[in-house]
Amino acid sequence: MLFPAPLIPGRLLRRYKRFLADVVLDGTGEEVTAHCANPGAMLGLKDEGARVFLSQSDNPKRKLKYSWEIVEADGAFVGINTAHPNRLVEEALHAGLIPELAGFAGLRREVKYGRNSRIDILLEDETGGVTYVEVKNVHLMRTPGLAEFPDSVTARGAKHLDEMADMVDQGARAAMVYLVQRPDCERLSLARDIDPAYGAAFDAARRRGVEAYAIGCRVTPQEIVADRLVSVAAL
């Protein structure tokens, strides 16, 4: 995924009200407010003074013309925009990055299913079989090399796990794909101390046949590319 225009560097002043971030732009010193498309806690990624990169929109209807895309943390670029993972995973699936999910005949996004939910990606094979793919963005790293999910309580995530297991019960396949938007993690685990209920829902879904995969990203101010498998460790 190439960014359509060069990102604008700056320094983070504060992230607040979940979806807002004040940033001082490099060069001009202008203070701007950027949209932060990330509902999580962003542990370790929102320190004052952190180097950040913003995209700029020319859409006059947007209230905020800047969006926070990347933060530099732990010596690496980390993608924090949760609007991108579905597209990144779709690109990875077309590239055959996850062999178990390769060979599909069709791919659709945001398909209604379950109890008033939408699946991120629906894969269809030539015989009419389907695979429900739920994508989760991951950027928490508390131990070097180990990515963790979630970084805050996610009742919605637990609900989706249960609904995907229901699809397996009905004869479909279902898979969780955890997209690690950072280049410095080679393993993924659950942050069970942060959300025990999600951990329990994950365990139940796995017992019912829901699959789990993780992929990592190369992140630069020019592009984000899902480029490797990440081992799913000790879940």
Rank of each mutant, 00 (worst) to 15 (best):
L97T: 06
M164T: 00
I215L: 12
N81V: 04
Y132K: 00
V133Y: 01
L20R: 13
L229V: 14
C217L: 03
I215M: 12
K136I: 03
F149L: 14
T143R: 15
E211I: 13
A83Y: 08
G216T: 05
V133D: 00
I80R: 06
L25W: 06
L2V: 07
F202S: 07
L140F: 11
V219E: 02
A73D: 00
I194K: 06
I194Y: 00
T220C: 07
E110D: 13
G49L: 12
T127A: 15
E69Q: 13
V168P: 04
V23P: 01
L93C: 04
K159L: 12
R187H: 06
K65S: 10
D162H: 08
E126P: 11
K65A: 13
Y132T: 00
P85D: 01
A105Y: 13
P39S: 09
D26I: 09
G106C: 07
A92L: 03
A37W: 03
A234H: 14
N116V: 06
S55Y: 00
I98G: 03
A37K: 05
V232I: 12
Y213V: 12
V130F: 04
V89Y: 00
R208N: 05
A191W: 05
A214E: 05
D227V: 14
R208V: 09
D151A: 13
H35E: 10
L140D: 06
R156G: 09
G171N: 07
L93W: 02
K46H: 10
K136D: 00
R18G: 07
M164F: 05
R115D: 06
G129L: 08
A158V: 09
T28N: 09
S55T: 06
L140Y: 12
D169V: 08
L25I: 12
C217W: 00
T220W: 04
N137P: 04
R208F: 03
S67V: 08
E211H: 03
L123D: 00
V210Y: 02
W68D: 00
A191F: 11
V130M: 10
P144G: 07
N137R: 14
A201I: 04
R18E: 07
N59C: 14
